[in-house]
Design a binder for these strands. Structure first.
Lengths: 239, 239
DNA sequence: CCCTTAATAGTCACCTGGACTATAAAGGGG
DNA sequence: CCCCTTTATAGTCCAGGTGACTATTAAGGG
């Protein structure tokens, strides 16, 4: 960070890559775009794009997110920087340094191939394999990071709408972790954590389900979970 | 990540910034360099530098680390990518995107201003304030990340030499977290965690201390702590 | 020779969390 | 219409982890 004037330096292309995650049909899905040109033509890839000259990586990520999903209120979404991928050769055409983000969406809108002609689609996480570039690794890192943050932060509510049931919140954990949780214990833990959720004054959900209607909750003011909600390290490979 | 050929893109200067942390005289210290030129001339800054054309950010970080510390076995040190800082204007001269790393050293060698003419020094973390650029924030992020990873990983041994006592390991936690831990409870927890530490076959440390000699341990094969060693969220601001 | 210092051993109570059973409140099919 | 399934909610029991604390051992120093 010192001695700029004494050294020549190489300019790099800087991009953002987005792992946009959501729960759709009770399974974790990721937003992918189909590449129309070489390299990796016909392969699926994470959405992304170049940084504009006067834009931070976070701003670029939100801009790309809005373009790809067509959502208006992108500012409210949870966006989290994962890490930066800078290996030479990760793009065969040129040297590209890419800042990767994970974005969490509650209600998945049908994507429209916004700024780009490439088709965008929600793909189940389990089927999102053999992506272009190093996007397999970025996607895996995104899921691992989100899964880890579910343990000790209130991140799970970012997958839910403004009002949700505890069953829906539990499904967030179960779908991201790929494990089943005991319902009474999950309920006890969530309600015992101060500030995690607060009940909606006078409402109970009736129409949708076939069982007893569930109470509705909102996200509370808390941001961290003390003590955390640990995923038990069981035997068996993650989904 | 698609449509390169259809868009013009801005080239950026890409650097790495290093928060090199160690325990020196029982306090957390960070390696700083004094800037000899504008901007921020005379101010302290984190060491760092530009990426070379065929080098990843991790490789650049290790190269800079070797230059600044003069250590030979930089490959063995724990190096962890923090995040990337890309706000426009963070460097008044030009647009610079910086990938920040935290490095953990066991035995602090006297730094020699290796590749650069600027003076390098170990500075107590508490006194490392008003750094150049956005390095205050990078340093704070580094400490927070390291402190958090102490909870659920075996990172603490990265601050220790190959053989260490449980008291030294406990001091890692205490100095990074800024809190005091109960010695018997810490001992019980560490020894109960399988693979965290293993005793050195037939040794006990005698010379240094004034109390009962402590047994020596090595880092074990484990990388994570299950269950974690949580810092209790007490009242009072962190040091 | 005692006093201080630090490591090690052990105790006790509380609380969390895993496993499990029971009850309540809806819809659906015969 | 009644029962059966489904889902939410309530509650119990117990093992283990951990905070707080006391006791003992083994060094060095005045």
């Amino acid at each position: 960070m010192h001695g700029y004037d004494k050294y020549a330096f190489e300019p790099f292309a800087v991009t953002v890559d987005l792992a946009v995650l959501t729960l759709r049909a009770d399974a974790l899905h990721v937003l992918l775009v189909e590449r129309g040109q070489e390299p990796y033509a016909g392969r699926w890839a994470l959405p992304g794009g170049f940084l504009l000259p006067d834009e931070s990586a976070e701003a670029a990520a939100r801009r790309e997110l809005a373009e790809e999903t067509g959502l208006a209120d992108v500012g409210a979404l949870h966006l989290e920087q994962l890490r930066t991928y800078s290996e030479p050769g990760r793009d065969p055409r040129m040297r590209v340094v890419s800042v990767a983000f994970a974005a969490l969406l509650p209600d998945p809108p049908e994507p429209h191939g916004g700024g780009d002609a490439d088709e965008a689609r929600w793909v189940p996480y389990a089927e999102a394999r053999d992506l272009a570039f190093d996007h397999d690794r970025i996607l895996a890192d995104a899921r691992e990071r989100v899964g880890a943050k579910l343990e000790y932060t209130c991140l799970a509510t970012a997958f839910c709408l403004a009002e949700f049931t505890l069953g829906e919140l539990q499904q967030v954990y179960e779908r991201v972790w790929g494990t089943a949780l005991d319902r009474p214990n999950f309920r006890r833990k969530v309600l015992a954590t101060p500030g995690l959720v607060e009940p909606v004054p006078g409402a109970a959900r009736l129409t949708g389900g076939r069982g007893k209607p569930a109470a509705l909750y909102r996200a509370g003011p808390a941001t961290t979970l003390h003590p955390p909600l640990l995923r038990t390290p069981r035997e068996g490979r993650p989904a």
